[in-house]
Amino acid sequence: MADRAGEGRAQPVKALMRNDLKQSDLTATGSPLRRYWRVFATFARNSIIRDMSFRSDFILQSITSVSWAVMNYVLFKLIYRFTTSIGPDTGWQENEFFVFLGTVWVINGSIQLLFMGNFDEFSDLIRTGGLDFALLKPIDTQFLISFPRMNWSQVPNIVLGILLVVTSMNAMWSDSSKGAWFTWWTVPAYVFFVGCGITIMYSVMISLASTSIWLGRNQNLYDFWFYITNFYRYPMEIYQRGSLGWALWGTFTFVIPILVVSNVPARVLANPLGGPWNAWEWSLVGLTLAMTLASLILSRLVFRSALNSYRSASS
């Protein structure tokens, strides 16, 4: 609930685009990949400088996001006093679930660190005509509007998520045979699927942000973000009951694949059912790969066609 109260408001992207990017960054010779990396690094550096110049605000934001996370942890600590798992036979027992929760923190933190604030600003860029400045730069526009302002106050949350995952994994090993299933590729696979999850969310959010070109002033994007993350905050098994539940599950797995964002990486690491995976678990992984690719391509198309309808605003 009310997760968004503490979200940092990003500084206007416009200013960054006009002043902080040096021409040399944009026209640097060498491979395009390197050029993009240099611009990205400049964004990261500028954002950190900006954050550090409003230090108390930065600290307050960090504390807010960490506090929400900790309160969520407290709630589930309380719930596990009364039950052993969430959903019968799902295997989401306390330690397994806290791996899940930690994963959600890492994913949410990363999304907000990297691009959420920028997308929130995007509708302002449309309304004020500030997007003109981005269109003129010799670099991909989607890239340029996605990353200029990073929200570093989310880093503590990500670190906390990693800590929760590590300690829960540790606890899991010491009291069960789960360790046997853990191999050298488990951690790389986990990191990879966390990446997939972030990519899917990136695609969903930029598609939503793009609609503000067509619709004019958009609703606060953080509202959407809040409602969407609300669905993937818990294991997907909880929706697999009742007709409404199955409908939600189907929609958010196959149409807007946000449930796989958190479920697949957490499942790779925690392996709640133990032992070798079932066919449906493997299909879920396959689905995630396909969905990541598809959503990335689709969102690119949406952004491009939205951009075609952009008619600037009076200056």
Binding site: M1, I79, S85, G87, T90, Y227, F231, R241, G242, G245
Partner: peptide, 27 residues
């Protein structure tokens, strides 16, 4: 829209109550 989170709460608690041990009248 504000009731959307309540929707997830309904399913979350449904799952939790279904997994209560039989000792407290669950299962």
């Amino acid at each position: 829209m504000r009731f959307l989170p309540t929707l997830t709460q309904i399913f979350l608690w449904w799952a939790i109550f279904e997994s209560l041990p039989a000792a407290v009248g669950g299962a």
